[in-house]
Simulated scan of single mutants.
Amino acid sequence: MEQSPIKKSSVTVADVARAAGVSKATAARVLGSYGTVSDAVRAKVSEAAAALGYRPNELARSMTTGRSGTIGVVVGDIENPFFSSAVRGIADVARLAGFTVILTNSGEDIAAEKAAIRTLLAKRVDGLIVSAASTSDFEHLLEIPDSGCPLVLLDRAISGIEVDTVTTDDRAAAEQATDILIRKGHRTMAYITACDTPDHRLHTLNDLQTGSVRQRVEGFVAVCADAGIAAPLEMVHLGANGREKCAKIALELLQSPQKPSAIIASDSLIALEVFKAVQQLGLSIPKDVSLIAFHDADWTAVTSPPITVIGQPVYLLGETVASLLIERINGAELQARRIVLPTELIERKSVDAPIEVVSSRPAR
């Protein structure tokens, strides 16, 4: 009777070894990418594996090599173009180094972040990249390097953790954006962010638990205070988390008796809802309200008018954080590195002087 062909899903290392005419141990070294074999043997085993349709058993490989070939990534909002671009940079570097990325979303919820990290550690990832939801609740992050798993922080620094961190210069960017508005004559501004508090009000800067957002708001408040603007914390509007909440906040602000003459949006999703609210109310940018957004999302350059943005090297941010992590996975023993990437204010057509300043200019 003719022997049935081996099913591809059940092809083992032993099957590949027999087909290649080598020992099982030699085939395992080739298929597991560890140890030393000659180029001729490697080619013979690889050809046999391809012919049989061999698929590696990742669990068995990780038990043999001590590695799973995976990197875990936890971000705050997977729908945000900022994180999408950063993850692309991470994935491209990881792929070239032979790693697969497992992506999880915390929704900026600390409980969800902790659960995601537990799951990724249980899957034996070789390293973790985390965009931390909180700068005060981070005990679970301290446990990661203690367990032997390298950790690198993405976009958000935490002063109490000595691990590699890659951020952009958020405070300087916010200071520059706010300064431009003030030099144009704006005094009633609004800064809108997704961060929130139980009563949806910002009482002190310590209320902001997301590192990057706190840096931005600190920059905004500092420049306003230096310009003599009273109560700048009251200009910070919280809770713009999701399209509906963003739209509600934008519409309320633009219809308020104290309507701001300029708005700084903490991300491009918020900026988009502000833009749509302006159109819905029959207003115009920058005549009725000036607008600046963090992150140079694609849509900001093609609207009418195009939006002034704070360009962040987001893809490079992802590339850099992945490179640092892979160095750690490969055994690098260095002091914790804190890399701050510069930002760029890209001036377009969404900023002008407020109406009262424009109307007071002498005719020419």
Rank of each mutant, 00 (worst) to 15 (best):
M1P: 07
Q3H: 11
P5W: 05
K7P: 05
S10E: 12
S10D: 08
V11F: 01
V11P: 06
T12D: 04
V13A: 03
A14L: 01
V16R: 01
A19F: 02
G21H: 02
T26D: 01
V30T: 12
L31I: 05
A40K: 13
E47K: 14
E47Q: 15
A50Q: 14
A50E: 13
L52T: 03
P56T: 12
R67I: 06
S68F: 09
T70L: 09
T70P: 03
V75Y: 01
G76C: 10
E79S: 14
P81K: 03
F83C: 04
I90C: 07
D92R: 12
D92H: 11
A94H: 06
R95S: 15
L96F: 07
G98W: 03
V101T: 15
I102W: 02
I102N: 08
S106A: 08
S106F: 02
E108N: 14
E113C: 07
E113M: 07
K114F: 00
A115N: 13
I117T: 07
T119D: 09
L121R: 14
L121N: 01
A122I: 00
V125G: 02
V125R: 05
S131Y: 01
A132D: 09
A133G: 15
A133I: 05
S134L: 00
T135L: 05
E139L: 07
I144N: 09
I144K: 10
D146I: 07
P150A: 02
V152H: 10
D155E: 12
I158E: 06
G160R: 15
E162Q: 15
V166R: 01
T167F: 01
T167L: 03
A177N: 10
T178C: 08
D179N: 08
K184S: 10
A190V: 06
Y191V: 04
T193R: 00
C195S: 15
C195G: 09
D196V: 07
D196N: 15
L202G: 12
D207P: 07
D207V: 05
G211A: 15
V213R: 02
V213W: 05
R214K: 15
V217N: 10
F220Y: 15
A222W: 08
D226T: 06
A227M: 10
G228L: 12
I229L: 15
A231V: 10
V236M: 03
H237D: 02
A240W: 06
R243L: 13
K245Y: 01
Q255C: 14
S256M: 04
K259E: 06
A262K: 08
A262W: 07
A271I: 00
A277F: 02
V278W: 00
G282S: 11
G282C: 04
D288V: 05
H295R: 01
W299Q: 10
A301I: 08
S304F: 13
S304Q: 12
P306I: 02
V309H: 00
L316N: 04
L325P: 06
R328S: 14
I329W: 05
G331I: 02
A332T: 11
A336K: 06
I339M: 08
I339Y: 06
T343S: 14
T343G: 10
E344F: 03
K349G: 04
I355Q: 12
V357P: 02
S359T: 13
R364I: 13
